[in-house]
């Protein structure tokens, strides 16, 4: 770790990369989770017989 981030500014460099990784992973998982939830909701509506005109 010292090789990558050094010792003097370890906290600053590691936290910059850490926060970037956290935010980008968070937005990616949020988008994936939303997709899953919406696919489920759409399937539920179609199972109840409410279908789009194009899928009839």
């Amino acid at each position: 770790m010292n090789e990558i981030f050094g010792t003097q500014y370890f906290g600053f460099i590691a936290s910059s990369f850490g926060i970037t990784l956290f935010v980008l992973l968070a937005i990616t998982f949020w988008i994936l989770w939303t997709h899953r939830a919406r696919r489920k909701a759409l399937a539920k509506l179609e199972a109840a017989g409410i279908k789009r005109a194009s899928s009839k």
Binding site: L24, I31, T34, R38, L42, E46, K51, R52
Partner: peptide, 27 residues
């Protein structure tokens, strides 16, 4: 490329949201 990937995924979600809203109104 990360932005392009996430943007297409987010656009797909938005289209699904609109389809759900249309079906809910129809119901």
């Amino acid at each position: 490329f990360l932005f392009l990937t996430l943007h297409l995924m987010a656009m797909r979600n938005e289209i699904l949201r609109r389809q759900i809203r249309t079906l809910q109104r129809k119901a």
